[in-house]
Write a protein that binds this DNA or RNA. Structure first.
Lengths: 218, 218
DNA sequence: ATTATCTATAGATCTATAGATAATGC
DNA sequence: ATTATCTATAGATCTATAGATAATGC
């Protein structure tokens, strides 16, 4: 009780942060499996035993790293302002360009997440599960955004449409992220614009046709 | 001279293959950095010194692994049959569904490639560069396919169109690949269909508008 | 007393090589 | 002689812990 009031000395908090940041940096270059406590210890300047004092083990450390870097990353995401009156395609283009620009300027969190997604030994680290949850949350967020764009009537009539468009949006932006990491010199803003146009078409298209979709009864 | 005629004993060839395959399997779970010669040795049953007999070092081993698994993967790709008369959108949908199905049934090579793409320590392993080259080749392949779909007149009038559509196609399929690896239970064939429809729209759309693109003078 | 850090270390794992041994092909 | 494998090992790196030391807060 009141454990938190005996303020851990500020020094302790700071060491913990240094460890988290060193781990994040190394994991970003080498992935989960390539990151060792020894390397973390070397980079943050604290002995390995300090790492074990702050974190039970590597699994625990990484779970905290994901949480910590996710919080930081969330804060960098641009606020989404509805701007009434703007045509849907413009809204789409602006948002997607912002997303892609954000990936390019601070790719660290998402890159680590995707590395965790691709690495997959049998006993899965907590960090991987945690990132997958974050990713699902992000997709749900994109889905709500699509529901907003489509409007309540459409959402009621075609309950799966926003879901599929959100999945499509996530897939496409993940793919553009990969391209930016591969060093492909693509014109990412232009491709984001293309994606916006494509999505706009798909939304219009779907509404023009009957909801023949046999899965449209959730 | 004639070095290759003194047939390396079949045993040697087989050991080499076992090492390559063991490395491929482990790298698929743990990435480049997570794969150690010791683990490879344990999995293939040969002592580490045998690995060093066949390969100079880890960098060399991985470069060969990429080559070897790429060759195997290429052989699994479905032949692309033009099927004259089929509408473009059908062609697109069929091809993309086949691509996505291929990813789902044998994701190993592409997964390893993407892991190499995301890991990026300072002195980049040869395998990473090699995969990036393979990826560029694949995009060029998709671009030629788009040129075929669009026809020579369109290609002459809008030289960048096929390029952009190819990049878009690659990004979207990479994103769907990530989704399949993340264990998202998405309806991938349906999303491939959606992608086909979107791409079809974009192609039509671009032709309806003038080639205002300032970059359209290669 | 509590919190944080340090030194020291046991034991595991890993890289890379030296050098012995075996098998094959002339 | 050539090709392939093995045993053995030096030395590096790594994980995880024990236990001493220091600083802080009552």
């Amino acid at each position: 009780m009141g454990r938190k009031t005996d303020r851990a000395s500020a020094q302790g908090e700071q060491s913990r942060r240094r460890i988290l940041e060193a781990t994040f940096e190394i994991a970003n270059e080498l992935g989960y499996e390539g990151t060792s406590i020894a390397k973390v210890s070397e980079r943050c300047g604290l002995p390995a035993s300090s790492v074990y004092w702050h974190f039970r083990n590597k699994d625990d450390l990484f779970a905290e790293v994901i949480q910590h870097s996710f919080d930081a990353w969330l804060a960098t995401l641009p606020r989404w302002e509805p701007e009434p009156g703007t045509p849907r395609r413009e809204l789409l283009a602006a948002r997607l360009r912002a997303t892609v620009a954000g990936y390019a300027s601070s790719p660290e969190f998402w890159r680590l997440g995707l590395m965790l997604t691709l690495e997959h030994k049998l006993d899965e680290p907590t960090a991987r599960a945690r990132f997958r949850q974050i990713r699902r949350d992000m997709i749900a967020r994109v889905e709500r955004w699509w529901q907003h764009l489509l409007g309540p009537d459409v959402v009621a009539a075609r309950p799966h449409l926003a879901t599929q468009l959100a999945q499509f949006t996530m897939a496409a932006t993940d793919g553009l992220f990969i391209a930016s990491q591969a060093g492909d010199d693509w014109d990412l803003p232009a491709l984001a614009g293309l994606l916006a146009a494509g999505l706009d078409h798909l939304a219009t298209d779907a509404l023009a046709r009957p909801p023949a979709d046999p899965e449209d009864h959730p």
